[in-house]
Each structure stands twice: as structure tokens, then as C-alpha cells.
Design a protein around this nucleic acid. Structure first.
Lengths: 246, 246
DNA sequence: AAATTTGATTTCACGATATGAAATGATATA
DNA sequence: TATATCATTTCATATCGTGAAATCAAATTT
């Protein structure tokens, strides 16, 4: 890893930590050798990161990665784990319904399509992974707005002005809140051609064990092929995911 | 967190990452405010860590912790998770057998007692958490030696000289290898007063899904109370733990 | 549209700070 | 005991990170 950024010490520190991650445990000399750093420099860097619990020293003086690093990983690890756990379940859901299944996460005032299992039919709905959409035009987004509460939802409406995408887009704050809050209570939300004409969705939220929203799960299909019964399947998968996430 | 180590930038970087970890997402100005750093400094530090994937920028320019950090956390997180998962199972095992159950990890040429469920009987075996013992005098240690292979076991024997702790300690390299390798095949190992007179153990290994050894699980009891049947219980718990560890 | 504000980013001269050679300590090895 | 090996500390030096200020980019107001 010879990436170089603007701060030398940080690059070197990353090199040391990477070296340490690749071997579980190492002596100062080994680490200095692996990174090409002067032992004195490696020592100083290790002492600095050790002071923050990022590395610990075992009885024989060897260095190991410490538990202090896990506080940063929790969130991102959780997302990776969720993705991994979700993928097979999403594929199964795609096979049951024949339609595209999306795993969607929130970023600011948008949802991001994070993972998907694409329908195998000729006519199908397909979002690019990484693509984005405003909260109020997607089924998942509406659930997330509702979950954030009336106040936050209204603030969102004011902030964005609820731009219309189709004639069906909910562009009135009160209508949006009504629709969203009802969906939240019900447990699943619809998108009736609110983002794109001819396309309909059903979505549910995936939560962690403390009830915090991690992501949304949705099925996107041509409007006339969408079946309301799929809500049940979605809820079951979401429940299973919630259970599997610590 | 005003810990100060020997390297200023690293302290500041930790402060920035901690701030970021506490809020999920933040702007440059917010982070500079939270850490008391000059925006310019915060910006440079963020750019440096971003170059290594430690933080990422979302669509609206906000900073978030990135997945680049998870590579460091995997190992230590795994240990924490194992401990958490093991504790209730260990308590159940303690209640079934009435004896002390230990979760033991390897560190160099020693095993470390990491977690335990202590027997409630008047006469019981009790190791301090964090205490250590050489590999060849413990049941878990012998399994780990065998798992590392004949060569590594012999190297260990040469390196340490297999110091004797009791008259029962295996101080001959070939006897040690025989005993250990047989135990590995069988799936569980005994310690017949090899570490301390009057104390006997049974132990098994806990592995991850790829078969790597994560830890050992042992029951320690006064020699005459030890029951060979406990091996079955231990194996069942170890298997369940292996299954629950990704 | 133009003007204003706010925040992000870049620049740059300065001096604090990380550097690494060498000395010292601490342990293992012969 | 002597010798070697590795970890740690010291310290003079120049490098490297710093932060004030300038610039750039957007959002907001007039």
C-alpha cells in the first residue's frame, strides 16, 4: 500500500497498522522491516496509537491490534454484514416474486440503492447500484421520513420543496405525511408511480435490535404486476434480518 | 478524550475520528468545532485519512467513517463477539457440570484465561482472568500445539524446554506430540494434573467457519470429580459457537 | 440578476514537530 | 561472564504540519 496522502505520519501509521493486520502479531523489528520505517520511527508511531488503544502489547512485548479500533468499525461493519446477510434472502425473494428486489439505505435527503437482486423477466425494473432518489418519491424513503417523525418530515418538505417527478408524486407536505405515517403504522409502504410512470413498489424497513432503522427493502415492478401480498414476504425477510443483526 | 501521546497529528486524527464516530456524519465545520481544530487542519487530516478509505464523503460533501477501518477491527471484534456469545453457554455448562468453565485464547507460547464461569461448589478450580500458562501444561494448549502441526510443536518444545510443573507434566517432546495429536484427532484433550497437582481438565477447540482456531473451551475440576462425558457437552457448545461466528 | 453570505479548499511562510542516527537499556544467547 | 539482539530514549536537525488568509463554490438574499 504505497498510497500517499498529504500527511506523512498518517501514511506511515496506516502502513504500520496494515502490516499489523496482516500478521496478527509482530515485534517492533518485524514491523519496521515490513514497512521500511526506521525502528525508532515505528516505535514512536506504535506508542502513539497504543495510547489510544488502537494497538496493545502482549506479555512478550509483541504488538497486536487493539479493541480500540472496533468503535469505528461498528457502523460500517454493520452495513457490510447486513448486505451479506441480505443478499441470499433478496435472491430468494426475487425468485418467489419474479421481480427486482432492492436494498436501500438513507444518505441525507436521499436513498441510495445499495444492493439488488434483479428480475429475470424481459420487462423489469432495474436501478443502478449507487444511484439515488429523493426520499419522498420512494416507498422506502417515505417509511424513513415517517420514522423520523412529523417534525423532521415537515422540515424535509420545506427544505426540498417536494419536487414532482410524475403526476402521482406527493408534492403536498400534509399528504406526504399522511401517506408516510399510515405506511409506517401498517409496516409497509407503496410507491404508486410516484418516482417514474408505470413503476410501482412495496417496501419495508430493516431495523437493528434496538429498533434503529438500518435500511429498507423494496420490490420494484411494473405497476400492473405488483402484488400487495408481497408485503408479507418482505416483512418476513426484514424480520429475519433484524434478528440476525446483533 | 484529551489523551496525549507523543505524536500530535495522530492525537488530532483520533479526535476527529472519535467525533465522527459519535455522530455518524458531519460537515467539516462541525468536526472542526467538535475537536477544536482549525478548519484547515481538520480538512487536511480528513483528506489524509480519506485517502486510505478510513472516511468517505457522501453526496452532499459530509464526512462519514469508511469501510477501510473494518479490516483492523475484524480480529478484535471477533474476539469480543466470541466472548459475548460464549458467556451464556459457559454458564449453562457450569450449571450442568457444577465445575468451572474457561474460555482460553492463545498468546505466543502461552494460553490466556479470557473468560470464565466459576463453579459454585466449596472446593473449586478458579483461574484469574488474564492469567497465563504455558501451552504444554494445559489441555487447550496441547490441542493448539497439535493443531499447529508437528513441526511447530517440536519448535515449541525446543524453544521452551518444556519445563515441568508437576510430576505429571509432559516434558518429553515426543510424548507431548503423541498426547496432543491423539487429542486433536479425538476432538478433545485431557490435562491430568499436568499443570497443578490434584486438578484435571477437559478441553475442546472453538474454530471459525474456515476452521481456524479462535479459542479453547475447558472445564477444570478436582481430578476425582472430572467426568469424561463432559467432552460431549463441550463439543456441542464449541460447535454451536463455531456456527454462530461468521 | 447581482450581491451577499457561508462553508469548503488551497496557498504559503513560519516554526513547531516528527525524524533517524546514535547512545542506552534490557534480555536472550553463547 | 561476555556477546548479541532487540527495544527504548535522546537530541540536533530539517522536514513537515500548521493556521491565517486568500480563493473558490454554493446557497441565500436583495
Amino acid at each position: 500500500m504505497n498510497d500517499t496522502s498529504s500527511i506523512q505520519v498518517i501514511d506511515r501509521m496506516v502502513a504500520v497498522l496494515d502490516a499489523l493486520a496482516s500478521v496478527d502479531k509482530a515485534s517492533l523489528k518485524q514491523l519496521a522491516g515490513m514497512t521500511g520505517l526506521h525502528p525508532s520511527t515505528a516505535h514512536r508511531i506504535l506508542a502513539a496509537v497504543a495510547a489510544h488503544g488502537w494497538v496493545v502489547r502482549s506479555a512478550d512485548g509483541g504488538y497486536q491490534l487493539g479493541s480500540g479500533l472496533s468503535r469505528y468499525a461498528r457502523r460500517t461493519d454493520q452495513q457490510d454484514r447486513l448486505r451479506q446477510l441480505a443478499l441470499p434472502l433478496m435472491a430468494a425473494l426475487r425468485d418467489q416474486t419474479g421481480e427486482t428486489v432492492n436494498l436501500v439505505m438513507r444518505d441525507g435527503d436521499e436513498v441510495v440503492y445499495t444492493e439488488r437482486a434483479v428480475s429475470r423477466q424481459m420487462m423489469r425494473v432495474e436501478q443502478m447500484i449507487g444511484s439515488r432518489a429523493p426520499l419522498h418519491v420512494t416507498a422506502v424513503g417515505k417509511l424513513m421520513l415517517a420514522d423520523a417523525g412529523r417534525e423532521a418530515c415537515m422540515a424535509y418538505a420545506e427544505r426540498t420543496g417536494l419536487p414532482g417527478f410524475t403526476v402521482h408524486t406527493l408534492t403536498s407536505p400534509t399528504l406526504l405525511w399522511q401517506d408516510a405515517s399510515r405506511a409506517l403504522v401498517r409496516g409497509y409502504a407503496f410507491d404508486n408511480e410516484e418516482a417514474e410512470s408505470g413503476i410501482g413498489c412495496i417496501a419495508v424497513l430493516v431495523r437493528d435490535s434496538e429498533g434503529r432503522v438500518l435500511a429498507g427493502l423494496s420490490i420494484s415492478a411494473p405497476r400492473e404486476r405488483r402484488r400487495d401480498e408481497w408485503a408479507g414476504n418482505l416483512l418476513e425477510v426484514a424480520g429475519r434480518l433484524s434478528g440476525q443483526m446483533g
